[in-house]
Amino acid sequence: MREITLTVNGERRKAMVKDNELLLDVLRDKLYVKSVKAACWRGECGLCTVLMNDRLVKSCLVLAVEADGAEILTAEGLVKDGEPSPIQKAFIEKGALQCGFCTPAFVISSHKLLTMNPNPSDEEIRSFLSGLICRCGTYNQIIEAIRGAQKAYASR
């Protein structure tokens, strides 16, 4: 066991972790960041995606000790003063969610895409998000949501 420090959604948090513990499990079970979901536990579904030091990672493939000192951003972290961020608003408006289990991962990934490139082509959106699965099939609405939010990112 050793102590690690993470800045999760802007807050400094500490956790005692084992060497073989996954970032996914520490975020969910020790820090109660439940927006981070899992559907495969082996890097295939993308639902455990978080931003770690501004890079998208699958948290089921990262050891917690590797993340020591890192900044982590998840879907909850995009909410400011109780207001959802533009990308979250667009997901709501365009109906880019059904069961919602995949939604936090798509939201944080779309957010990252738009911060890098506020005007992505359809092709760029598709290739950027193809590591994630949405079984409910909200893909077309996700593209609409990204289109709906891109103005807000362009003007930042």
């Binding site: 979901k37 899992a38 879907a75 909410v79 997901f91 709501i92 109906g95 969610l97 919602g100």
Partner: peptide, 19 residues
């Protein structure tokens, strides 16, 4: 009209049984 629970889902704060 968007689903009534869309806010919770989009913000990652909807509680699933897994959580």
């Amino acid at each position: 009209i968007p689903p009534q629970d869309a806010f919770l889902k989009a913000t990652g704060t909807a509680p699933y049984n897994y959580d």
